[in-house]
Structures are given as structure tokens and as C-alpha cells.
Nucleic acid binder design. Sequence first.
DNA 1: ACCATGTCGTTGACGTGTAAACAACTGTGA
DNA 2: TCACAGTTGTTTACACGTCAACGACATGGT
Lengths: 157, 157
Amino acid sequence: MPEPRWLDDDEFRAWIGYRRMRLLLDAQVNQDLTRESGLSAPDYDVLSALTSSEGHRRRLTELADRMLWSKSRLSRHIGRMEQRGLVAREGCETDARGSVIVLTEQGLRTIREAAPGHVASVRRHLIDLLSPEQIDALGTIAETVLAHLAPDEDLRR
Amino acid sequence: MPEPRWLDDDEFRAWIGYRRMRLLLDAQVNQDLTRESGLSAPDYDVLSALTSSEGHRRRLTELADRMLWSKSRLSRHIGRMEQRGLVAREGCETDARGSVIVLTEQGLRTIREAAPGHVASVRRHLIDLLSPEQIDALGTIAETVLAHLAPDEDLRR
DNA sequence: ACCATGTCGTTGACGTGTAAACAACTGTGA
DNA sequence: TCACAGTTGTTTACACGTCAACGACATGGT
């Protein structure tokens, strides 16, 4: 048995609060997103990552690394989005194994239409509830934790 | 098109930071938990909720409400945990439809052995990285968001 | 007592994530 | 140039969650 150094009240409040917030906030934001745009949260993440990539395209592995997804998961998800016409697969010119994921016209249109509503949802359920100091504190907390969990990587968007 | 009121830099940093933290922190804590105790995060949550219930037992619906899970999900998960001997089902005396979930001896032993390591993991990857002010800020942020998303309910543990 | 309506918990069909195995291909050192 | 270890992306088998439908039972009004 190691050191059973328990959580005090404030620490417990923070941890449980975080867990409950995560549960309810994500559920609400995802629900808003799906209702308004027909996109799931993973859909939105993929489209968003592609939109901010050069030429609206990216190698599968690069995309997976950037999103912290497994290649398997991304491959499957791209398959589904491809069938809906949101993205397309292209062969890679410099590596015959590789596949390049490209945002389609429809995919671009879809996320452009979804974005304002999504941002409004994030504002409504999180950002606009907090003071500038709290926004800043949350950003700093997240950066601290991320620096600990992934010290070297550049995990920016 | 509604009002495209975008996120400014601080707001964006907070939102993206929150999403990445959620991804990495949960993955790390869950991985620690599973490696050290063989329990998944949902397993731990169920055992934890039962441990803090009178008689180590609870009606399925009550448990589901408290955990913010669907009854369907809980029923299936209890089924799996039952097969591993962590919990047991009993009929309800006052309502013949009902089923009561009971913590078994083995379940109690399992979570008691898992708890210290789990708390240590939470400390290592979150709590001990933050100042008391940050802990407090996180707790307040979570409470604010929860008050907005579930104004009436008592969502305490 | 009876019927309508609602709740409890479970289940089937389905969508999606993971882990492991896989074929196809790359690139490096002998 | 040629084996060979490593990568790339896909796929197969499986675990798990959701939604809708369901049977069994409870409850309230008549």
C-alpha cells in the first residue's frame, strides 16, 4: 500500500466538478451541434482540422497525430464521411502506401454553415458564463496539464 | 445567419485547452486505473456510487439518475460487472419490476484496493500540478457551468 | 374491479471505438 | 542490389453505447 494521501474538500470539489462538467457540457454541445448541422462532434473535429490545413488536405497519419486519434479510428471515420460526401480520399504521390484526405466542396460548405451555431453553443454553455479571469484561469490550467502530459509535442490547433 | 460573434484569443485558448486536456487527462487517468486495478473508468464509477450508498445497494434507476447514465447503459454494464462478480442483482421488495444492484464482497475489496492508486493518479496528473487558487478556480468554474446546465437537480456525489 | 397511462428494467438492431493482424510499400545498411 | 525492419492504411473481431420497442408491473381515476 503506497501513501493514501486523500483529496481534501477543495480538491475533491475540483475533481468531481471537472468530471460532471465534462459529462454535461460535452453532451449539451454535441447535441446542439448535431441538431443544428447534422454533424457529430468527431465529424466537426475532422472537418475543422482539414479546413485549417494547406490545400484543405492532409495525410491520414498526420491528421491522426494532430487530432490524437488512432489511425484505425480515423480510417473508419473517414470512410463514413466519404460516403456522405464530406471528404474524399486521394492517393499520395510520394508514398504509394499513403492516402491523402481532402475536404470536398460540400464538406467546406457544411462546416462553414455549422461553425457560427457551434461557437454560439460553446459561448452559451461555457464561455459567456465565465469572467475574463476565469477564462484565463481555465486556459492556464489546461496548458499546465498538457505540458505535463505531453511535454515535447506541439499540441496546438 | 445569426450573430457570428467569434471567440477571441483567450476564449479560444480556454476552449481548445479544455478539449485537449479532457482528451489527454482522461486517457491517462483511465489507463493508470486499468493497468493498476483491472477496472475501467465506468467500472470505478459504478463501484464508487454503490460504496457510498446505504447498504451498498441501490435501485437501478436511482443509480442511473445519480450517475447521469441511461438505464440501458447501466443495465448492460451491470450485466458485465455481475459476470465478473463485482456486483449482484436482487429483486426489489416493494416493486416487482425493480431490480436492486448490490456491491459484492469482491467488489468492495476491488475498489478499496484500487482507490489509493487512483487518487494518486489524479493527484499526479492534475491536482498536484495546480496551486490552491487554481484548484478553487476549477471548482468554481465547474459549479458555474453545472448550475447553468442542470439548475434544479442536486448533482452532488 | 377495471382500464388507461406511465414506469421499470431488459433486449435487439445498429453505430462506433479499440486491439491486433495484415498486405503493401519504404528506406537503410551490408 | 538486396534482404529486412519499420511504416502506412485497412480490416477483422470484439467491446461498448444509443435508440426504440418490449413485457411486466404500478398507479390513479372512474
